[in-house]
Amino acid sequence: MADELDESVSPAVGDRDGIRFIHQATHRRAMSPSLSIGDLLPAKRTAPGPLFATG
């Protein structure tokens, strides 16, 4: 997916009131994200948060 989009991709799943990142695929030109696999972030402070809120 990262190659197709020419972007970094960080798939996530909803986990209670947060978002848990489950994988990272960084694209060759991208900066390294500071997230780690398994990190739990508040849903309202993440890009995928609104997608899970509409659930």
Results as ranks from 00 to 15, higher is better:
residue 30 A to K: 08
residue 29 R to L: 07
residue 24 Q to K: 14
residue 24 Q to W: 00
residue 49 G to H: 05
residue 53 A to L: 07
residue 49 G to A: 13
residue 40 L to M: 01
residue 49 G to P: 07
residue 16 R to C: 02
residue 16 R to E: 08
residue 16 R to H: 10
residue 13 V to N: 02
residue 38 G to H: 03
residue 37 I to G: 02
residue 31 M to E: 13
residue 49 G to N: 06
residue 6 D to N: 15
residue 21 F to M: 00
residue 1 M to A: 12
residue 4 E to H: 15
residue 10 S to Q: 10
residue 44 K to M: 03
residue 44 K to I: 13
residue 21 F to G: 00
residue 24 Q to H: 15
residue 32 S to E: 09
residue 12 A to D: 03
residue 16 R to S: 04
residue 16 R to D: 13
residue 10 S to Y: 10
residue 35 L to F: 14
residue 33 P to L: 12
residue 18 G to F: 06
residue 13 V to I: 15
residue 52 F to Y: 07
residue 52 F to M: 06
residue 23 H to F: 04
residue 22 I to H: 00
residue 46 T to N: 11
residue 26 T to W: 08
residue 29 R to D: 10
residue 39 D to N: 12
residue 30 A to E: 12
residue 29 R to P: 01
residue 50 P to L: 12
residue 40 L to S: 04
residue 37 I to F: 01
residue 4 E to Q: 12
residue 17 D to R: 13
residue 38 G to F: 05
residue 46 T to I: 09
residue 10 S to P: 00
residue 7 E to P: 05
residue 29 R to N: 14
residue 23 H to P: 00
residue 14 G to E: 12
residue 5 L to F: 04
residue 40 L to W: 10
residue 18 G to T: 03
residue 41 L to H: 14
residue 25 A to V: 07
residue 54 T to Q: 09
residue 18 G to M: 04
residue 15 D to I: 11
residue 51 L to S: 10
residue 5 L to Y: 14
residue 55 G to V: 08
residue 13 V to D: 05
residue 50 P to G: 08
residue 36 S to R: 11
residue 46 T to D: 03
residue 6 D to F: 00
residue 16 R to W: 02
residue 15 D to K: 13
residue 11 P to G: 01
residue 33 P to D: 05
residue 39 D to C: 04
residue 33 P to S: 13
residue 41 L to D: 01
residue 11 P to A: 04
residue 37 I to N: 00
residue 17 D to Y: 03
residue 54 T to P: 00
residue 21 F to S: 00
residue 44 K to R: 11
residue 18 G to L: 02
residue 26 T to F: 08
residue 31 M to I: 07
residue 17 D to S: 07
residue 35 L to Q: 07
residue 34 S to W: 02
residue 12 A to Y: 01
residue 9 V to F: 06
residue 13 V to S: 08
residue 29 R to Y: 03
residue 46 T to R: 06
residue 52 F to K: 01
residue 31 M to W: 12
residue 2 A to N: 15
residue 55 G to D: 13
residue 21 F to K: 02
residue 5 L to P: 01
residue 13 V to Y: 13
residue 23 H to A: 14
residue 51 L to Q: 09
residue 45 R to K: 13
residue 24 Q to A: 02
residue 9 V to L: 09
residue 45 R to F: 04
residue 48 P to K: 08
residue 50 P to C: 06
residue 34 S to L: 14
residue 20 R to F: 04
residue 45 R to P: 00
residue 54 T to L: 14
residue 39 D to W: 05
residue 37 I to R: 00
residue 32 S to V: 11
residue 8 S to D: 03
residue 40 L to D: 01
residue 50 P to D: 07
residue 1 M to K: 08
residue 14 G to C: 09
residue 20 R to Q: 08
residue 9 V to K: 02
residue 49 G to D: 11
residue 26 T to C: 12
residue 6 D to S: 11
residue 21 F to P: 00
residue 30 A to G: 06
residue 41 L to M: 09
residue 55 G to W: 10
residue 35 L to S: 07
residue 11 P to D: 06
residue 55 G to M: 15
residue 39 D to I: 05
residue 17 D to P: 05
residue 25 A to M: 12
residue 48 P to F: 08
residue 5 L to W: 11
residue 22 I to K: 01
residue 15 D to G: 00
residue 2 A to Q: 09
residue 24 Q to Y: 09
residue 10 S to N: 05
residue 6 D to R: 14
